[in-house]
Design a protein around this nucleic acid. Structure first.
Lengths: 143, 143
DNA sequence: TGAAAACTCTACTAGATAAGTAGGGTAATA
DNA sequence: TATTACCCTACTTATCTAGTAGAGTTTTCA
């Protein structure tokens, strides 16, 4: 299952991506618009900021804004920060590899064989989508 | 993450699939060979039996055995029984659909848009794999 | 027949994780 | 300089996972 953290994080990113300009948007505005607990959203935006997707401005008129254009923000990176490993088992993870302590040989492991394919297919989707691709306001000037 | 239940269930199915004949195999044998707690495995095999993948024989010389040939056991069905919905959010689930209470419109939801693709890609993998495909002893007579 | 082998079922539990809550602190801006 | 709004830590509640415990039932073989 997708965690609420990931779900809310994606929605917040999309909300920021849908802004006409890159003026800071207050947490309270995002929280209200997307039906998210404000305090919970704070912690999520914080981790997105620490990972380099967002920046923030303090004081009156402050808030969060995207650091990059939506078409430069890949879902692969977003998902790894919000949800963690893309693989369903550590023994097929690219970035978080760990061997299974109960499995004598990965090469003959049925689970490994299946999960490797699942990981590759998920990865293909995430690599093929940027934030731009999942916005509702698609730009009119398509390439 | 893949639950241990699913992992063990897949391993047990693969173990049975790798048997030369379809004689019943004892729980204890599977548990020992695959490093699984016997009691936990019991409950997993029970649910696989109730779902029609396995049958069991009681008494001396009893055990579990596959009801169908490995190439007739689809991962789509196995995963749904062991792990539950294949979709990462209920609003894109084929068999366990539920609308999100916090989302005003699925058609403009970024999360929906992305997770729909993820579901489809995972589904494609599971539909394309039977138990036969993930065994280590592939039959020599390929079609 | 009867005892042992082996599955069946219910109930309980420790530990981890998710999802939030609470509340004070700090920095920036009008 | 007061207000706005981000920043951070600690705590809590609920749910789920991965078992554990133990008694019960059925079947088979000697």
């Amino acid at each position: 299952m997708l965690s609420k953290k990931t779900k809310y994080g994606l929605k917040a990113l999309a909300y920021l991506g849908n802004q006409k300009n890159r003026k800071p948007v207050q947490i309270s505005e995002i929280a209200e618009h997307e039906n998210i607990s404000q305090k919970f959203l704070e912690s999520i935006l914080l981790s997105l900021r620490k990972s380099g997707f967002l920046s923030s401005k303090k004081g009156k008129g402050g808030g969060y804004y995207l650091l990059k254009d939506p078409d430069q923000i890949y879902m692969t990176d977003v998902m790894r920060v919000l949800e963690g490993p893309i693989a369903m088992v550590p023994c097929v993870s690219l970035n978080f590899y760990e061997s299974c302590d109960d499995c004598p040989d990965e090469r003959t492991c049925s689970v490994h064989k299946l999960m490797l394919q699942v990981r590759d297919s998920a990865l293909a989707v995430y690599r093929n989508n940027t934030l731009q691709d999942i916005l509702c306001n698609q730009p009119k000037d398509e390439k």
